[in-house]
Design a protein around this nucleic acid. Sequence first.
DNA 1: TTTCTGTGTATTGTTCAACAATCTCTGTAA
DNA 2: TTACAGAGATTGTTGAACAATACACAGAAA
Lengths: 248, 248
Amino acid sequence: MGMTLDEILPDLRRQSVDVRHAETGLWAASMLRDRISAGQLAPGAKLSEEPLCEVLGVSRNTLREAFATLAREHVVTRIPNRGVFVTRPTADDIREIYRVRRFLEPAALTWSTDYTTDALHAAIARARSAHTDGSVPGMASANQDFHAGVVALTGSDRLNAQMTQVLAEMRLVFHSMVADPLFHAPYIDDNAIILAKFEAGERSEAAALMVDYLRRAEQQLLEAHARARAATRHPLAQTGAQRAYGTR
Amino acid sequence: MGMTLDEILPDLRRQSVDVRHAETGLWAASMLRDRISAGQLAPGAKLSEEPLCEVLGVSRNTLREAFATLAREHVVTRIPNRGVFVTRPTADDIREIYRVRRFLEPAALTWSTDYTTDALHAAIARARSAHTDGSVPGMASANQDFHAGVVALTGSDRLNAQMTQVLAEMRLVFHSMVADPLFHAPYIDDNAIILAKFEAGERSEAAALMVDYLRRAEQQLLEAHARARAATRHPLAQTGAQRAYGTR
DNA sequence: TTTCTGTGTATTGTTCAACAATCTCTGTAA
DNA sequence: TTACAGAGATTGTTGAACAATACACAGAAA
């Protein structure tokens, strides 16, 4: 986690030999997106054009198309004449993420016409087993699956895309602070209760519980973010890229 | 409305001389977006790279960055090795647009914490005066402002962006069919009633009325779309670009 | 020491020209 | 009429070039 650009270059190179790409720009974008999502490219890391296009085997023009795609997804932040950096979410970003989720997820619970909850039950089961295994990434992933599944009830591609994007930003938030192993645990039961209410047809109750859940999670993340921010105020902990991106 | 590419080339050229652009790709995108939004580039029109970059004064690479931006917004559709076309909304697109709106707008009315309704009143007033003036574009624009204003109550940049995008697609729908002059008129009073309920604190009633409004509007547009589709089935009415994009 | 200031170097922003891949169109033959 | 083949046009991608900007470092002034 949080490897430098140099460390993952060989890894990227391995995957980029002999790959035929119909849409090279999109292919390069998904390549980078996966690394960032996995935390191998940590928030604040600078994505220099030259080494990247050498390693991916694409031209600078194509790489810039990939950057444009990722920038629109807020996965990457472009600073003119400075370069492209993995987005380091701010407190305002966290508030915005939860603002979106507080409208999207209750709305899905309230007005969706889809009653297929298999995926939701499966996500909760996965979260529970990850909990007994003590797998923090497993719990995080299963939790995301549950909430993505809630929005999937809308049946709308665009709303799903928006949720996917917001959850990707959530992963950036987790990667940019020390993960509390107990963060996800209390929410598993919350999800189960919300699902039960939804299946019982008590939609407004389910929605209200969801709003409450999201408020608590937001509060907890904002506090963790403030602590992480205070911890990295030490000049020694700042890399060049971090300074470049700013601690705004 | 619905001019060919050749007809608006001189117009575009006029605006593109001596313009300093910090982000040329985004500038070119907004240039094209404006033309499409105004209906000067009709749905189905092909956007050839060479004449466009000549006229905009940007290179093909930069123009392609603009295309990538517009494609993500669904304003433009890219067909590999065929080219870029102004999106011609399908019936499914209309259904998807209203699916998004039926979640976003009621959610805003139900859970927003912002009570500033000045912009909403102003939009209704503008719609009424456009109605007495018999200005169909004025009514359409004021109606869009009202619904954009509802989502603006959420205070979320991302939800606003999503709504803006969906409304841009709505304009494409209007441009791709014969506009019924009476389409918007009946909805002005609906908006006023919804606003009154919202201000009276009867949020779930306001949301319910909004859902009803959106269902009726969707139905009406789908019927108009089916009629327009039947009318353009005549082979003579099809241009090359239309065939290329397909009547899928 | 600290702060300022100027210069050189590295990186990004944009354009141009080229080539391969693919599609469209036209004309011919069955 | 339909099928097919080839020429021409357009898109997809690359590589190199140059201007504009930011970063790092050295030296001068306070």
